[in-house]
Amino acid sequence: MAGLPDPMVPSPLRVQRVRRETYDTFTLELEPANGADGFSFAAGQFNMLYAFGVGEVPISISGDPTKPQTLVHTVRSVGAVTQAICKLKRGDVLGVRGPFGSHWPVEEAAGGDVVIVAGGIGLAPLRPVIYYLLSNREKYGRLALVYGARTLQDLLYNPELEKWRGHFDLAVEVTVDTAAASYRGNVGVVTTLIPRVQFDPLQTAVMVCGPEVMMRFTLRELEARGIGPENIFMSMERNMKCAVGFCGHCQFGPTFICKDGPVFRYDQIQAFFAKREV
């Protein structure tokens, strides 16, 4: 994988475009500042993004893995570093290290159904999967995207959601936790949509990303639908400083989220996932 030269030192990438997704979430398109090669990655991997002088955070890549010329990140402004990143304008420079970590099993899932369950900003690490699945549509059975957000104003990638809804061979179910009466879509937590999705429990890969509590509830619904833990994949989050297994922060039981994850097959972490304060 053609990443960046040094795993410890951020490389400068220039912001080409900033898209405002919601009131607090922005999508940045980056290109190498020095006109170097593209940025290959696998769906589910992340980069360490460095806001000059402020600090560094792990952020999943949200772009199209088949278009490595542009590096795309969707960032929610929640702390000092993400705030600084979200303030960047076209032409500004952002430090990038990566890509790091494991990826979603898009190739292994070929031949069966794929269900994507995303909560909140958790759709960002899964968007590369959707791109991949749609550009290799013939390899898969039924495809479904189940996406929940807090309110209508929190939904990411609205133009794309509309486009995806238009695909007859991709079932798109979107729900928000609360809405005003004028809203005509689904209201309710994301787990309420799972019983409605069509798939063959024995031939389905489910890919889940969202807040840990949402993922726990989702696992229960999937279990009720007869999906085995070996067919569920989830992306985990922990504090992370180095992304290469040296800093120790992202340990989750015996695993390191940065190098063994962030994408895990559920049965790999099942023993610790149910426990508290791991």
Binding site: F52, G53, E56, K241, F246, C247, G248, H249
Partner: peptide, 16 residues
């Protein structure tokens, strides 16, 4: 072996 990182700048914020 665990470590953390600290990003620092000069007062003018020009050098990191």
């Amino acid at each position: 072996f665990c470590t953390t990182v600290e990003d620092v700048t000069d007062l003018a914020g020009e050098h990191a």
